[in-house]
Design a protein around this nucleic acid. Structure first.
Length: 255
DNA sequence: ATGGCTTGAGTGTCAAGA
């Protein structure tokens, strides 16, 4: 099974790129973030014509997540239970016996911001929820834009980013709390090239200059990590015209 | 140098992203 995640920064703008990417890579599941679409405007037919069914939870202008899958998905949940949040950032569903949890973790803006406190509370609620989900679903994958670089090697300039949002210790501690549930960073199960990133600022020619961060992740439960054969970042779409600022991440699981 | 792009809203120019 091939699982993927991609923050598309507007599915309206990126639809043709997403359809092209689906045709090339044929993942079993593609999780999308920042669709920025109300549900009534989701391109259900175009996705269906590409051979995928879509689950989506969106809102106007901001946020919005979707799970595209080749086979039917069941038991969809589009909010963290017991966490009151108008922002559409979560979509969980079961595909072929695997619980797929698609997340768009809040950005946080800066460590001084109220949005940073929201980010930490959001992550704490996610962790509490997934503790239960993992008991019910030993085969669980958590995919999405985490807006956290796990380690300094995931940052192009660790000194410049030290203590800043996306790299601060409380954020890394929150990610560690997810690891402590038994989830593993599939990317680090394998040898990887240096300067492997998933996001590059649109400004300053950051992509060309390899000035990025690895903030999009595929976390796997122990059962799934044991059968994971690869995790890669596809930088090709970032080279195209009008790219998303994020690259897709792909994990392959045996059977 | 707190900017630099890009998107969505909406028709001015700002919020938000990371």
């Amino acid at each position: 099974m091939k699982l993927a995640t991609w923050n598309v920064n507007s599915l309206k703008v990126r639809l043709a790129q997403v359809l092209d990417w689906l045709a090339r890579h044929q993942p079993d599941v593609l999780c999308l973030q920042e669709t920025k679409l109300e549900d009534a405007n989701f391109p259900v037919e175009a996705v269906r014509a590409a051979g995928y069914q879509a689950l989506f939870s969106g809102q106007k202008t901001y946020n919005g997540v979707a799970v595209l899958s080749r086979i039917a998905a069941s038991d969809a949940v589009c909010a963290i239970p017991a966490f009151d949040d108008p922002q559409k950032r979560v979509l969980a569903t079961t595909v072929n016996g695997t619980r797929v949890v698609c997340v768009y973790v809040p950005n946080g803006e800066s460590v001084e911001s109220d949005k940073y406190q929201y980010k930490l509370k959001w992550l704490a609620a996610l962790t509490q929820w997934l503790r239960n989900e993992l008991q019910r679903h030993p085969h669980l994958a958590l995919l999405g834009d985490f807006n956290i670089a796990p380690q300094d090697r995931d940052v192009h300039d660790p000194a410049a980013w030290a203590g800043k949002v996306l790299c601060s210790q409380p954020e890394r501690d929150a990610l560690q709390a997810l690891f402590n549930l038994g989830l593993q960073d599939s990317f680090r199960l394998f040898d990887q090239p240096e300067k492997s990133f998933t996001w590059w600022d649109y400004r300053m020619n950051a992509f060309r200059r390899k000035m990025g961060l690895r903030i999009d992740h595929i976390l796997l439960s122990a059962e799934l990590a044991a059968v994971c054969s690869s995790c890669t970042i596809d930088t090709e779409p970032r080279k195209s015209e009008r790219p998303s600022d994020h690259a897709p991440v792909i994990a392959e699981l045996a059977a």
